[in-house]
Write a protein that binds this DNA or RNA. Sequence first.
DNA 1: AAATCGGGGTT
DNA 2: AACCCAGATTT
Length: 360
Amino acid sequence: MTLFSAGPFQRRLLRWYTAHQRDLPWRRSKNPYHIWVSEVMLQQTQVATVVDYYRRFLQAFPDIGTLAVAELQDVLKLWEGLGYYARAANLHKAARQIVAGGKKRVPRTPETFGRLPGVGDYINAAVSSIAFGHPLPVVDGNVKRVLARLFLLDEPVNRPSNHRVFLEKARLLLAFKDPGTFNQAMMELGALVCKPGRPLCDQCPVASFCGAHQAGRVTDFPRRLAARKNPHHHLAVGLVKKGNRFLIVRRPATGLLAGLWEMPGGRVEKPENPADACCRAVLESVGLTVFPGPRLARVAHAYTHFKITMDLFACDVVSGRVKRNGYQAHHWIRMKDIGQYPFHRAMHKAFAALAGALPP
DNA sequence: AAATCGGGGTT
DNA sequence: AACCCAGATTT
């Protein structure tokens, strides 16, 4: 391939970015903490999804000190529905580490910032370049796609060992004068023009530099390894009532949906019927012997690596008192209290089904 | 190096 | 349905 000239590429890209960039709330701020929060929320999450969460989060936690003294429950409540809840826990933990070290601001050097929980190579490069001007290239999903097309890179983008290939190309292109703006321009190009399905090459400011475009092979890139099929799981959970209250439990601090609340339950094992599975799972997880009532709801939900069907059964307590196994906490609450707790999406679907089945 | 970790939008 | 998204951490 001919020698790639970074200067003209950068000028074309940056001129396009100046004219076409979206007006996003975090681009109106120079506060490093704001930039940081936005980058964490934007991890594997589209811009349109993040905007409202970003505003609400910064209204509640306007600075690192405020976040550090907050309860994790309250941080998770503001993260509710956004997914990848370890991001919230790590951000919260990082804020506490900064305050515990006698500071109240984002570390200005990549070496220090990069040691905080939840700060990997991408977020370190993004915050360090955008907020502090450090010349570190960012490589996210958008940038990988742009680079694969620009340089006809055959390496599958979803193979971890190929990451360094993309990082080296990004480093070659990086504009040292204003690396933060350049990095954002590369990502914006991927999001608005160099899109996965139908790239808008006729609107692309750097099409004349693009190997895939010149070769008429834009849709051949990026290459990717085939994903394997997702398994399906059947879950059964109980609406366990005591008077006018029902039981909710808080999931463990690590793993799937860490720290979120739900109704107790578990997997439906092979020969089992869902109602029996519900009773068994309630007994195993909270120590209550319950008798199954009617099925109140059936919810379908998809996670990244599996799908679930979740059945919700009314349950009457026969005997026992709560003895938790695995869960962090339990509360007996009324339906009007559910807004006080962070629940995962499948649980919200169940609540919605209940509201529809039992109109007021 | 692969698996895990959400949820929603797009095609 | 499969793919994709301003990835990080654990195994």
